[in-house]
């Protein structure tokens, strides 16, 4: 009991320090992006959206891998080591939620940028479309988890995750072919002609900041999920132990899954 409390305290402390550091780096990144980096010659100030858009897009592609690996680990460990499998599942759900958050940011900031620079909110260009499909796949994953009955959530989620991971490369290629056959007029010159060295500090600070933030929120979400699992187990145990004749529920049985 003693050691459990102290571990809890240590992780709480590490978490707080990490959060403070992340906020500091985020502030630096913010200042770099808005005030120190030069204004883009072609796009003007709106080009600064780049510093949030691209790191979010990058991270939105990293977290699905964590989800996939955790889901595979879950499927492998499910029968062999149920406790470890639960941990893997916590990582999977946390990674999926964080992916959706980053992909949403990528989509929204991209649209805001597109409206100002291209004059349109959206185009069915292959990059936009694949990002949208990635978003859709992970929202479908979260919906499945939400709608599944208790006790099967993790397995069903892991299965969908494997299917989604198989789907992503196919989506990527098909959309690419699709769009090379119908070239869209919007893409001509643009932001892709390389990054000016004077923009590197702002860009790298923001990548670091969002990476730290992503790591923080992922770990936090995993911790919350672990707690929920432990509570679930505790309640299951109490159900088993309680005397059926004077059975009394201790508190509202508001299970269902809140996540």
């Amino acid at each position: 009991m003693e050691s459990a409390t102290s571990t809890k305290r240590t992780s709480l402390m590490i978490g707080s320090v990490w959060l403070v550091l992340t906020l500091v780096v985020l502030t630096i990144g913010f200042r770099q992006a808005l005030f120190l980096s030069p204004t883009d010659a072609e796009q003007g100030d709106v080009g600064r959206i780049f510093y949030w858009h691209v790191p979010s897009a990058m991270l939105g592609l990293v977290f699905p891998y964590i989800n996939f690996v955790a889901s595979l680990a879950f499927l492998y460990l499910r029968r062999r080591n149920p406790l470890a499998a639960l941990t893997a599942d916590a990582w999977a759900v946390a990674a999926a939620e964080v992916s959706v958050v980053f992909a949403s940011i990528c989509l929204v900031t991209g649209m805001l940028w597109g409206r100002a620079v291209w004059g349109i909110w959206w185009t069915w260009d292959w990059r936009l479309t694949s990002e949208l499909l990635l978003w859709l796949l992970y929202v479908a994953y979260l919906m499945t988890r939400r709608m599944s009955t208790d006790g099967q959530t993790s397995t069903l989620g892991a299965i969908i995750s494997v299917f989604a991971a198989l789907d992503v490369p196919l989506v990527y290629f098909s959309i690419r072919w699709f769009r090379t056959q119908h070239p869209s007029p919007v893409f001509g010159g643009g932001a892709d002609s390389g990054l000016d060295p004077s923009m590197y500090p702002a860009f790298l600070w923001n990548v670091l900041a969002w990476l730290m933030w992503g790591g923080f929120i992922l770990a936090f979400r995993v911790a919350v999920e672990r707690r929920r699992q432990r509570l679930d187990q505790l309640e299951g145990l109490r159900m088993l132990e309680s005397d059926i004749d004077n059975f009394k529920l201790g508190g509202e049985p508001e299970r269902g899954n809140a996540f």
């Binding site: 003007g44 709106v46 939620e97 949403s104 940011i105 900031t109 805001l112 940028w113 409206r115 929120i217």
Partner: peptide, 25 residues
Amino acid sequence: AMDARHLVLAYASVALFQGGYFAWV
């Protein structure tokens, strides 16, 4: 200017999404 407005909106949306998710957790 659309430039400035969209830059602010983009920043607000980043803060909204990340902050909202954080608050939810």
